[in-house]
Structures are given as structure tokens and as C-alpha cells.
């Protein structure tokens, strides 16, 4: 393979690192995109291979390359788990910078704003990454800064903020999955919403036999960031007679998106609403889980389910 380094002034410095990635592929396990689509081209390794190809000249910069490079929720799980110590998301960001200069701007998971935007500018303040600005006419999103946490989507009163390809983390998709769980599982009692950091889900890319899952009484749905837990989503399972809803978020000092603080506020107000209508507020619970603390996550779910069993269904 001939070395044909092109104009990638940001990506160029990673050349050695890109060669040092042993391409073991263990990052798949951690990537919500790969888990959602099942395509290797959506996994972190694919972006590393693509970045390598861009530098070597074997991959032409294109819309398709750009879609891949801009599709990342920056949960950084791949990075934390990488055995070669590859700074994956820094590489993605640098690749994005170079692609933007070639006028290839994703969008992938970059948030955008639809025409229905009322210019209330709430999203500017809410964005933890300073990716949103107002040019006097429209909201402008910096595709390099945007980390697709989706908080803009949850704060937008007009429903104008959106992510084109949400890889299953869109509110409606999550609500559909919750509904589907309750309609297919007689024993269903609860939904556990988990941010992608607090939940260490293993790969779980395989489908279990019916007999193994028939009696399942809770479902875990990954919603990327705790900051995206808004009341409509949290209440949705109760429409299907859920006994309770638990939310797992990362601890405040570990959250890159200020999602923990937002989640706490949302859950607190939901608890108050429950109290006011005489429903036990403990049916909604928030837990903080450090990344990778699988044991605590499982223990919290067990405790929550025990409590729900004591409370019984909502009458």
C-alpha cells in the first residue's frame, strides 16, 4: 500500500495511532450505533479504518464517508475500552474538521433545526457543547462541536430540533419500543431507561429464544443521555399499565452533557406530580451508575423490581 497522504491537516497527526489500532473490533460491544444497525460500517472500528483510508488515499472523501464520520454520540465507551489506547473520538473530531473544510458536513447524528423553529433560542443556552448559535436569521449548528447528546431536542418547545439519524434513540422510537415490550410480554412491569454510560450492556446483538424471554418483566432502553429523559418519555410506559419506570444516569461529575442535573430535575417534578395524584412517587426512580458498574446496575434494578412487586399495579 503506497502512502498518499492528502490534505488532512487535522487528521494527519493521528497517522501512527491509526496504524497502531490492532483492529480487534472489541469496540463494537460498546457502540450504540453498531448495536442498533448491526452493520460493521457503523462501529467505531469502521471510523478508524475510514480515517486510515482517507489518509492513505484509499478512501475518497464523500457524502457517505461524511455520514459515517459524523455519526457518533460521543459516549466515548469505545475509547475507554480500547486496548490500544486509541483516542477514538478525538480522531473522529479531527476527521470531521477536515471534512467540514471540504464542505462535507455530515449530518449523521449532528443535530439540525427544522423550519418550524420559533427562534426562542432556548437550545443555545441548553447546549452543553456550545454547538448552537444564532446568525440573526437562523439557528446554526457547528457540526464539529455537536456531540449529538440530543438535549436541544428535549428542550425545544417547537419540536424543531432534531437528529436526522438517531440510531433508535429518538423519543418516539423509544416510546414504540416500550409499547412493543408491554404488548408482547404478559409479565411486563417496568421500563428501565439507561444512559449509554451508566448501562454496561455487553454486546447483546443476538436474539434469545422466546422461552427465555417470555417471563421478562422489565425492559432496558438506552436513551443515550440522562438529559434526554423528558416527562413524555418517562410517562409513556404508564399508558401501557407499567408499574414503574427507573432511569439510570451517570454521576454528576462524570456526565459530559450536564444530563445528570437535568434528569434529576425532571424526575423530581414527576415525583411531585405523582404525589399530587396519589400515586406512590417511588414508582419513578433515578439511580446514578458509574460507567461499567454492572453489579450496581443489576442490584438497583432488583431493588426497584422488589419494591414494585410490593406496591403492585397502579389502581
Amino acid at each position: 500500500m503506497e502512502n498518499k497522504t492528502k490534505e488532512f491537516k487535522h487528521l494527519e497527526k493521528w497517522q501512527k495511532t491509526l496504524a497502531n489500532c490492532i483492529r480487534c473490533g472489541y469496540c463494537y460491544e460498546h457502540c450504540p450505533m453498531f448495536k442498533y444497525t448491526g452493520w460493521e460500517s457503523d462501529a467505531p472500528r469502521a471510523k478508524i479504518i475510514t480515517a486510515f483510508g482517507l489518509l492513505s488515499g484509499e478512501v475518497e472523501p464523500s457524502e457517505s464517508v461524511s455520514q459515517k464520520m459524523f455519526s457518533c454520540f460521543y459516549c466515548k465507551r469505545c475509547e475507554a475500552a480500547c486496548s490500544s489506547g486509541v483516542a477514538l473520538t478525538d480522531i473522529f473530531t479531527d476527521a470531521k474538521k477536515d471534512l467540514v473544510e471540504m464542505d462535507l458536513k455530515g449530518p449523521g447524528t449532528t443535530s439540525t433545526t427544522k423550519l418550524t423553529c420559533a427562534r426562542c433560542l432556548i437550545c443555545l443556552k441548553a447546549c452543553p457543547h456550545e454547538a448552537r448559535s444564532y446568525d440573526g436569521k437562523n439557528i446554526v449548528v457547528d457540526p464539529v462541536k455537536c456531540q449529538a447528546c440530543g438535549i436541544c431536542i428535549e428542550v425545544c418547545p417547537a419540536g424543531a430540533a432534531t437528529i436526522q439519524n438517531s440510531f433508535g434513540t429518538d423519543r418516539n422510537m423509544l416510546m414504540d419500543r416500550a409499547s412493543n415490550f408491554f404488548s408482547t410480554h404478559e409479565a411486563a412491569k417496568a421500563i428501565i431507561f439507561a444512559c449509554n454510560w451508566s448501562y454496561y450492556p455487553d454486546l447483546q446483538a443476538s436474539v434469545l429464544p422466546d422461552a427465555e424471554t417470555r417471563d421478562k418483566n422489565y425492559e432496558i432502553l438506552v436513551n443515550m443521555c440522562g438529559g434526554r429523559l423528558e416527562p413524555q418519555l418517562l410517562m409513556a410506559p404508564f399508558l401501557y399499565n407499567a408499574w414503574g419506570v427507573m432511569a439510570a444516569v451517570c454521576p454528576e461529575d462524570k456526565c459530559d452533557h450536564k444530563g445528570n442535573v437535568r434528569a434529576k430535575k425532571t424526575i423530581e417534578s414527576l415525583k411531585n406530580t405523582f404525589k399530587s395524584i396519589d400515586i406512590d412517587p417511588e414508582r419513578v426512580r433515578l439511580v446514578e451508575i458509574k460507567a461499567g458498574d454492572k453489579a450496581k446496575f443489576k442490584a438497583e434494578i432488583d431493588t426497584f423490581m422488589d419494591n414494585l412487586n410490593k406496591m403492585g399495579p397502579i389502581r
Binding site: C24, E40, G53, E60, K68
Partner: peptide, 13 residues
């Protein structure tokens, strides 16, 4: 069939 996908699937470990 996009070349960028094919390139990725041309590799393993």
C-alpha cells in the same frame, strides 16, 4: 455497495 462501506468490510484484525 458504497466504496466507503466496501473498504471497511475489506479488513479484519
Amino acid at each position: 455497495t458504497d466504496p466507503s462501506d466496501l473498504y471497511i468490510y475489506g479488513s479484519d484484525s
